[in-house]
Write a protein that binds this DNA or RNA. Structure first.
Length: 152
DNA sequence: GCCAACGTTGGC
DNA sequence: GCCAACGTTGGC
């Protein structure tokens, strides 16, 4: 079992949008970063748990728990001329971008904010908290996962 | 392979 | 809106 943190801008797709699809899988697509792609394509396993993180918004932070329900497969939004994530360099014969499907486990009772996370020295190794970090998908250790859940 | 220019991310 | 940090692109 692996643990992850996945960012989304709530103005684009937030925890409420995922909650509206409860018990239904939702593709986590549009990721156009090689490190994040590699993790989705090669490392994420069905049953892995993930934090849903709101970024680029008034209250950035962890807002929910998800699980991976479908492992990495080609992100076909890259093939769609009309999609905002269209990438002419990706094609079905040789897909460049991958996605996974997720499912909501539950929203958190409250947002565990970025500033609050920074207050805990036990979390200082998280990529999320490192200067200049821009990864939209990143691993979380089992220790960090349990620690953060206790903050709720 | 280097590196400047440019675009994007994302907190504040 | 600002801006630091980082990734990507493309000329050479």
């Amino acid at each position: 079992m692996n643990y992850w943190l996945m960012k989304s801008e709530p103005a684009e797709f937030g925890i409420d949008d995922l909650a509206a699809r409860r018990r239904q899988r939702e593709p986590w697509d549009g990721v156009r970063n090689y490190q994040a792609r590699n993790m989705m394509r090669d490392q994420m396993c069905r049953g892995d748990q993930a934090f849903f993180y709101h970024s680029n918004c008034p209250q950035p932070g962890i807002v929910g728990l998800m699980q991976i329900v479908v492992e990495g497969y080609p992100d076909d939004t890259a093939f769609d001329l009309d999609d905002k994530h269209y990438d002419p360099k990706s094609d079905p014969q040789n897909p460049r971008w991958f996605r996974v499907d997720v499912e909501l486990v539950r929203p958190l009772n409250r947002t565990i904010g970025l500033a609050e996370l920074r207050e805990h020295s036990a979390l200082m190794e998280m990529p999320l908290l490192r200067r200049g970090n821009r990864l939209s998908v990143m691993p979380v250790t089992a220790t960090e996962w349990k620690y953060i859940l206790r903050l709720e």
